[in-house]
């Protein structure tokens, strides 16, 4: 087993098998996944569609159950960790409530937790400022662009101060310019707040830019094929993408992905 005692997330020999519906064969979504994520580490999961990267995040957040193996999130099993609000989740879709203003949308997890109104709105305002949505707190989601909606979703996921932040292709539906900008801001956010992040993406460049480690996965069954250590110095900016070291890491990732997809 890899990983030391202070691992924030420990995934041990996890299998997820979805039973096939009506004659279809069972899907082996994850096969023997072993991974330990250190406190404050940013880890990206990358791989072809169907490699189970989203499934892995769903297992960590108790949205799916592992068929085999064990998972520890911030010292608890996923269910306990979820009930203790140790996990934040940002989905590809912002999934905001259309009938609520941005402020109360961001405060939603705190409202569910039972935090008094004044306190939770103050916290929501803090987060809105943090993600650069100041001045938009009174707007409704449909008045905001895709990038701004995703900022609100990030703020919402951070509202309960989760120990582990899970992000499932949060910028996948955005245009390149918005994506670059949000990458930079996420970089700053995680570097300042020292969050433990598991980040699913299709973009190897995005993964290398943001991560301490990039986990490359293969599909059917979903397995970890290799882990790339990203030793680029921090704090990073977008300019790091122009360095030779970055290019070498990105190329290695592309190469690994291609090898994986040939099998």
């Amino acid at each position: 087993m890899t990983g030391s005692a202070e691992a924030k997330v420990r995934i041990s020999d996890v299998d997820v098998i979805y039973p096939g519906a009506l004659g279809a064969s069972a899907v082996h979504a994850l096969d023997g996944i072993d991974l330990a994520v250190r406190d404050g580490e940013f880890v990206s999961l990358i791989g072809p569609s169907g490699c189970g990267k989203s499934t892995l995040l769903r297992v960590l957040s108790d949205l799916a159950k592992p068929t085999e193996g064990s998972v520890v999130v911030a010292g608890d099993d996923p269910r306990r960790a979820r009930l203790k609000r140790k996990v934040g989740f940002v989905f590809q879709d912002a999934a905001l409530l259309e009938w609520r203003r941005i402020l109360t949308n961001v405060a939603l997890p705190l409202e569910i937790e039972g935090v008094p109104r004044g306190k939770r709105l103050a916290r929501a305002q803090e987060l809105i400022d943090l993600v650069g949505l100041s001045g938009f707190e009174r707007q409704y989601p449909n008045q905001l662009s895709g990038g701004m909606r995703q900022r609100a979703a990030i703020a919402r996921a951070m509202s309960t101060k989760p120990e582990v932040l899970l992000m499932d292709e949060p910028f996948g539906a955005l245009d390149q310019i918005t994506r670059d900008r949000l990458n930079l801001e996420l970089l700053n956010l995680t570097q300042k707040n020292r969050m433990t992040v598991l980040f699913v993406t299709h973009s190897i460049r995005e993964a290398v830019l943001l991560s301490d480690r990039v986990v490359v996965m293969t599909a059917r069954p979903g397995r970890i094929s290799e882990i790339i250590e990203v030793d680029l110095p921090r704090p990073r900016t977008l300019e790091v993408r122009e360095t030779a070291a970055f290019a070498a890491l990105a190329n290695r990732g592309v190469h690994l992905l291609e090898m994986g997809s040939k099998t």
Binding site: D62, L63, D93, A95
Partner: peptide, 17 residues
């Protein structure tokens, strides 16, 4: 929306909430 339901689930919302 299924994703909104996931958000509520991860936030540990009760059935009533």
């Amino acid at each position: 929306d299924r994703t909104v339901m996931d958000v509520f689930h991860v936030s540990a919302a009760s059935g009533w909430q």
